[in-house]
Structure formats: structure tokens, C-alpha cells
Amino acid sequence: MSPQRTYSQTQPSLWKARLTLATRSLRQSWTLFLATRIGVIGLAIIAFYALLAAAHPILMMFVWEERVYDPVVGYAFEETRQPAPPSLKHPLGTDPLGRDVLSQLMFSARSEFMLGLLAALVTVSIGTIVGAVSAYFGGVVDAVLMRLADIMIMLPVISVLVVLSALIGVEHFELAIIIGIVSGFGATGVVLKSQALSVVVKPYVEAAKTAGGGHVHVIFVHVVPNLLPLSFLYMMFTVTGAIFSEAVLSFLGLLDVRMSWGLMIHVTESAGYLLQVTEYWWLIFPASLSITLLCSSFYLVGRSLDEVVNPRLRQL
């Protein structure tokens, strides 16, 4: 075959071929993912909350009157007693300060998503690079990074966050970054390093070095891509952890956030309704159920991805 003919045959399809390969492997993974069922349940819950989050600004703009339905400063003037039980105007009732619970719930969903995904992104970026670098270089680099990981794992995160929020004031963004750093340099980094250790000894890494590939080439072309399935899995678990931490902190009233699910329970608690669950159920159930569901949905998706990337766990 002459080079010229090869060129004309392959050149137009170089990127098309790559795209075809990518979609093919994506479709295969999707089929496996669907077969796990728990992942589908998780994804359905995530989709539900994503819809809630997306619908809130639209409702605020076109349907809901701002001075009544604003999640933070709104007030249900037509109700005589606060908190008011669910009604047609307020499907989930109002809170002790006369604010619409459904609006609060939907408004918070968006920040929960942003918090969880940002924390996960930071975790996984740091964890993957720490794991790859630590396994690849070994020696002093490894020792330093792993001792740092030990410190991060030992760190009582909640207590540290209590102190930090007292000192500098922590909002969703800062919280996501802190959780990302602690988890990325800590547990996630260690797990990904153990995976990377089995990659760096592969002959294809030696082949890349023999070809003249430098450290950056080997780490980003050979080590990191082989860690990505596992990183993605840990990303899902981090989302769960981040949402949960946020709920705990804002329940304790330690976050500088305008509204969140944890804060909704905090308001209920400080107004003295926390222990009257049967009577004032709408003050507690929507928020706590949302925390539980969204946390578990990301966990379920993670478990399901675990089966996709880890064939040994697949049910026969």
C-alpha cells in the first residue's frame, strides 16, 4: 500500500475515527450501567432534583411573587399563623418565619449540586495527580505526599471547619474547596495512588520512557488515563460526603449560607419545632428527606459505576 493512498484513506477520518471509538465505548458503558438498576434509580433521583433546581428561577420569574416566595426574605402574608401547614398556595407549607418551604427546598437544591460537584471536581483533580505523581516518582516525593495524606485523614474535618467558619466565615464555595483539598490530598489520593502503583510498573510505561517520553508525558498520557475510571467513582462518593458535611455544618449554624437544607432544619430546631415531627412534619421531612435522597443517589450511581469499571463485581 502506497503512503499516498493510506493518507487519503485515513486523514479525513482521523478525528472521526476517534469520535466513533469514544461513542462506542461510552455506549458499552451505558449498557452496563443500565443493567445495574441501582444506578438507574440513583440517576432518576438526581434528575428529579436537577429539575427542581432548574425550575426554581423560572417559577420565581413568571409564577411566584417575589415578596411572598423569596426563599430568604419572603413572607406568606395571607397566612394568619406561621408555620402554616401545606395549602394550595404553599404546597409544603411555610416555615416558622413565614417563608415558603417548597421555594426554599428548590432554591437549595441548586447550591447543593454546585457544592457537591465542585468539591468532587477539586477532590478528583488533586487526588488523581497526587496519586499518579506519588506512585510514579516514589522516594522522597512519595514519602512527603503520603505523610501529608496521613495528616489529612487524621484531621477531624468537622471540628476544623467549625474553627475555620468562626475565623473566616465559610460559604458554599469555600466549603467545597476545603472538602476537595482534604479529601484529594487525603483518602482519595491514597486510594488512587495504590491504583497508580500497579500502572507505573507496566512495560508500556517503560516503552514510553525508551521512546524519550518525559515525566509529564508518562504521567498524563499513561498513568492518569488508567486512573480515570476509579477517579470518576470517587468523584461520586465525594459528592455524597460534601452534601452531608454541608447539612451537618449548616444545621449547627456554622455556615454563612443564605439558604440550604441543613439551614432549614436549623431554623426548625431553633424555633423549637424539631421534636414535634408528627405535628409539623413539613418543616422537617422535605429537607431531611432531600439530604438523604440526594446523598444516596450519588452513592448509588457510584456503586453502579464501580461495577462498570470493575468487571469482577459484575453480577453474572
Binding site: 514510553a208 525508551t210 498520557v221
Partner: peptide
Amino acid sequence: KAQMIFQDPYESMNPRRTIFDTVAEPLKVQ
């Protein structure tokens, strides 16, 4: 000027890279 051929053909290629990527790697890094 010096290259190596490895013993195990099942381990000496990155499973996530195509044959083109694998063979073109020396050209790319050089």
C-alpha cells in the same frame, strides 16, 4: 537511536490507546 521490544505483548501496550497512538508515540515525543 536505541529502542527496546518487550517480552509481554499483553502488557507492553497501554490498553486505553489505539494502535496508532501506540506506534506513533515515539514520533510524538521526539
